[in-house]
């Protein structure tokens, strides 16, 4: 008797659990870098069309793995795949938005935009050779700032991250030491520091931990009111992380001639360029299993391109109109949704 009542309960729940006819839910996974704008777009898209976007912000590495395994409709990554990698996996890649990666810190008395850092010093902090906030290298760049003598707690990523890829790419470009010891990748052997999961984890950790420094996408710094640092760019000028600085760096990108739209935007020339700018990419299968879902996803992306104002509100840079045209042509040619 007990058994049959249990079975009845199971049957009831199973009945409830039968797939409910939802308005199409698109599934995606990947980078935490663009998560704030994807979430904002998804919310507005759902209000407008009733279709939801279930985006799991689990990091670029995990996003690539999910799309290759075909468990999601699209993957998102800030570490772009090369043309050969795309061909081998049967994927199509295009950039969605661009943004800047900023160093964030939590030191008493220093306000956003007050601290100035340059590439080599940043590299040495993350290498562990610059250990305290009042180190000579930092003092030299900030003669007027009162720096405490406390140890620097480095906060870096524990997961495979496109943000890390771009950040370490920048550090490799400006520090031969970093390039030889660590190199540039989505996941590196960090010599020092605590690991946090996702851009949000790093932001949370830096906010919690006194005398810490980390690197996050600018939207995370802005939304959580973290203290960011200004950087010295390739041209030797001190720049702050503003949308103009990101745009100046992004203007150097040559999208038309890059197979798979592969472009790395760190350490770009230009007086006003932000040195750690990056684009974030979407990956979809050229011949998707679920054509309907992929078609819905492309509709969402087309809508997102039209609503690029939302991206600007969060200080992301939308793709230039000409590039959007190229991207939509790529969709038509390469992704088979019919």
């Amino acid at each position: 008797m007990k058994l049959s009542s249990i079975l009845a309960a199971v049957g009831l729940v199973m009945g409830l659990a039968a797939p409910v006819a939802n308005a199409a839910d698109i599934s995606g996974a990947g980078a935490t870098f663009p998560f704030p704008i994807y979430a904002k777009w998804a919310d507005a898209y759902k209000k407008e069309t009733g279709n939801g976007l279930n985006y799991q912000s689990i990091g670029s590495g995990a996003g690539i793995k999910q799309i290759v395994a075909k468990t999601v409709t699209f993957g998102a990554t800030d570490a772009p795949m090369t043309a050969e990698e795309l061909k081998k996996a049967g994927l199509v890649q295009w950039p969605m938005v661009m943004g800047g990666i900023v160093p964030v810190l939590n030191v008493e008395g220093i306000k956003p935009g007050e601290l100035v850092l340059d590439g080599p010093t940043l590299a040495n902090i993350f290498l562990g050779t610059v250990k305290t906030w009042d180190d000579a290298a930092i003092k030299k760049l900030n003669p007027k700032l009162a720096l405490p003598s406390t140890s620097i707690t480095v906060v870096r990523r524990s997961d495979g991250s496109g943000t890390t890829f771009n950040f370490t790419d920048y550090l490799s470009k400006i520090s031969a030491d970093w390039k030889s010891k660590i190199g540039a990748a989505a996941s590196v052997e960090w010599p020092v520091g605590v690991g946090a999961k996702g851009n949000d984890g790093v932001a949370g950790n830096v906010g919690q931990t006194k005398n810490s420094i980390g690197y996050v996408e600018y939207a995370y710094a802005k939304q959580n009111k973290l203290t960011y640092a200004n950087m010295i760019n390739k041209a030797g000028k001190v720049v702050g992380p503003t949308i103009e600085a990101f745009q100046a760096a992004a203007a150097n990108a040559d999208w038309a001639n890059s197979p798979g739209y592969y472009q790395i935007l760190t350490e770009q020339p230009g007086d006003a360029s932000w040195p750690i700018t990056a684009a974030t990419f979407i990956l979809m299968h050229a011949e998707p299993q679920d054509k309907a879902a992929s078609g819905e996803a492309l509709k969402f992306f087309a809508w997102a391109f039209k609503n690029s104002k939302m991206a600007e509100e969060l200080d992301y840079i939308p793709m230039p109109t000409a590039v959007v045209g190229l991207i939509e042509k790529t969709w038509a040619n390469d992704i088979k949704v019919k």
Binding site: A17, A18, P19, S27, N54, K197, A203, G204, G207, Y220
Partner: peptide, 24 residues
């Protein structure tokens, strides 16, 4: 989102808390 479809991911409290708590 709200989903009762068990053949795909469903929302659940522990993982949601895990994701939310790490975010500032």
């Amino acid at each position: 989102f709200w989903s009762l479809d068990l053949t795909n991911s469903v929302a659940n409290l522990p993982v949601t808390i895990n994701n939310f708590v790490n975010n500032p």
